[in-house]
């Protein structure tokens, strides 16, 4: 049964990918890319990667599509026909693919429990993390504690990317001259949409907080929560107008938040050093090792969530305000 679902999803993925290569309308290509993300999220669920599926669904289908559409809004939405036949490209791609397929012959079969990958560090994470770290969700304990260094660096990358987008496009605060009621970006004619958005927004934010603080016990965590929170802000901006959103979440506030998240993460590591442990070794933070780990993971995930939220929202602002400038 699992195999059947697997094959169906993979077939759909192939069809979507081929459609993306053929289609000339960039708007359709972006939408198909969103569908591709959603299908791969389903595939991740069938392969037991619930956390990854959650992230892919929130990021790939939500934020990535919105950012691509915003970029399309700033440029052309139709692709020109290439003047030459890309036969050489096809040849290169086929050769690379053949080499890669040849390479997979040495890989262990799909789902094989005796594969080397399952016997190096993974058993330790699965067997010991409950005693050493605490959370029942192994992904959280690896992400925040065992591999805290990786996650710190990745948070910094997201922060840097957010800053780069703002540096490239710049956000102009136009609130000075214009009053909120004349904001043209607000969807004035769509009363139903506006009412439903207002109705749902508190619940979207509440759900983001649930994902943030429930990440220890189920799928979720800082990355997903930050992205969901950012989508809430984007919905607010799309339906109720950019100026109103800018009033609720000013750019300066978001910049401070993005920085504060990274500082909170790094600061947790430094606090561990001050208490006599290693960098990002949370065991020394509390009375017992487990309590320390619990506190450390809580702070670190909060830092990640805040940074991701602020960076994603800043990126959206940068794209959405460019048109006016």
């Amino acid at each position: 049964m699992e195999l059947f679902i697997d094959i169906t999803l993979l077939t759909f993925l192939c069809i979507t990918a081929l459609a993306i290569t053929v289609i000339r309308k960039l708007f359709c290509a972006v939408m198909l890319a969103g569908i591709f993300s959603l299908l791969s999220a389903c595939l991740f669920v069938s392969m037991d990667a619930v956390d990854v599926a959650f992230t892919e669904a929130a990021v790939g289908t939500g934020i990535a599509t919105v950012l691509m559409l915003a970029a399309l809004n700033l440029s052309h939405s139709r692709e020109k026909c290439p003047p030459y036949q890309p036969l050489l490209a096809l040849l290169v791609v086929c050769t690379t693919g053949a080499v890669l397929v040849y390479g997979t012959m040495d890989l262990p079969a799909f789902g094989d429990a005796t594969a080397p990958i399952h016997h190096h560090v993974a058993p330790r994470y699965i067997e010991q993390s409950q005693q050493e770290i605490g959370p029942p969700n192994f992904v959280t304990s690896i992400l925040a504690s065992y591999r805290g260094y990786d996650t710190l660096a990745e948070t910094v990358v997201i922060f840097t990317a957010g800053l780069s987008v703002v540096a490239l496009l710049g956000i102009r605060d136009r609130r000075g001259g214009q009053s909120i009621t004349t904001d043209r970006s607000a969807m004035k004619g769509y009363l139903v949409l506006r009412v439903v958005t207002k109705l749902l927004l508190p619940f979207i934010f509440l759900f983001a907080l649930y994902v943030q603080f429930h990440g220890d016990y189920g799928p979720g965590g800082g990355f997903q929560a930050g992205v969901i929170f950012a989508s809430g802000v984007i919905i607010h901006s799309l339906t109720l107008g950019r100026d109103r959103t800018l009033k609720a979440f000013p750019q300066r506030f978001l910049t401070i938040l993005a920085t504060a998240g990274v500082l909170l993460y790094g600061g947790t590591g430094l606090a561990a050093m001050v208490r006599g442990g290693n960098f990002l070794d949370y065991s020394v933070l509390g009375a017992t090792a487990l309590a320390g780990q619990h506190l450390g993971i809580f702070l670190v995930e909060l830092g990640v969530g805040v940074t991701v939220f602020a960076s994603m929202t800043l990126m959206y602002y940068a794209f959405s305000y460019r048109k006016e400038a």
Partner: peptide, 20 residues
């Protein structure tokens, strides 16, 4: 409940956008 609220809304918004 979420679907019962959002899916009619999205259908409505789509139809209206198409008309516009």
């Amino acid at each position: 409940i979420f679907l019962l609220i959002t899916s009619p809304t999205s259908t409505h918004a789509l139809a209206k956008a198409a008309l516009n």
